[in-house]
Design a protein around this nucleic acid. Structure first.
Lengths: 148, 148
DNA sequence: ATAAACCTTGGAGTTAGGTCTAAGGTCAAG
DNA sequence: CTTGACCTTAGACCTAACTCCAAGGTTTAT
């Protein structure tokens, strides 16, 4: 059994994060010492590694918890359940990549148009683009939201 | 002069956001009515559009404020100052894209390896990868952090 | 004159994923 | 028997960019 400091050192993670995962329902220590210290088993360590790997491929803690609940009750779950989570995440990540690429394109256009010299910025093409809004620099992400 | 509701409708933005921008030091209404209502000039509207465009290419509000302080004092600033901000942002966004692509690659590997069938998940390759950590699914983003 | 639609303020709440603090209990070494 | 390293808890704080709320003042139309 590992105490919290040992497990956190072993897995390169903050002790507080481990307590936070417990509070979030992701990982309970499987025992407590007589003094109330958390005691983690090998299996607890394996679950922590699972959590960290899920995090490492981009899953949020809530999604990781879903994965974990499948992992713990494999028999009654289907492969398609697991694959669905992965594919949904993939779709989400691809959307984020597309958004960032849109930013990247606009920023490249701005950067390439600017001389970058040490003269005054009075006629800077970047500032002009932001003042007037050219075709190259749209702002597609500002969508009207609800009001009180 | 526009009242807050008029400007917010004109620019497709929440009134509270406008108040929030004021509190954040990004945009002050250039006058107040006798009753204390915010009154925005054409120039204020232009500044708001500048802010929204900067936001639209991925700048945070803090970065937008930097851009704005250059915009307002162009004469004493250089093109290189502006371009530096854009290029820094570009670097940051490219790093984020790289991170997401790494997630994407791992998730694709997981998805492709899984049958996705309706049989039990007991032998699901995705769950196995997360349990054991294959070479294909590394978790590079967990870095040991400081502790109390 | 009164209702609806507008505006004001200060301050709290939201999300995600931690991180930190204070006040105190436990354990091993010297 | 005390020092230092370890552990406990509840709860506050952090970032970013809003969003919402309550309580109240103003303006405009009927």
């Amino acid at each position: 059994m590992y105490r919290i400091g040992e497990l956190s050192a072993l897995c390169n993670i903050n002790k507080d994060t481990l307590r936070f995962y417990e509070k979030s329902g992701l990982l309970q220590a499987s025992a407590r010492s007589s003094a109330g210290y958390r005691l983690y088993s090998e299996q607890d360590k394996d679950i922590l590694c699972f959590i960290l790997r899920a995090k490492g491929v981009g899953f949020t803690l809530a999604e990781t918890q879903e994965l974990l609940s499948i992992e713990i009750d494999k028999e009654s779950k289907a492969c398609s359940d697991v694959k669905q989570l992965v594919d949904d995440k993939l779709t989400e990540i691809e959307a984020k990549i597309a958004e960032l690429k849109c930013f990247q394109k606009s920023l490249k256009t701005l950067s390439n148009a600017c001389c970058g010299g040490h003269e005054s910025a009075v006629h800077c093409t970047i500032l002009e683009a932001l003042e007037q809004g050219s075709n190259d620099v749209r702002y597609e992400h500002s969508v009207r939201q609800g009001d009180q």
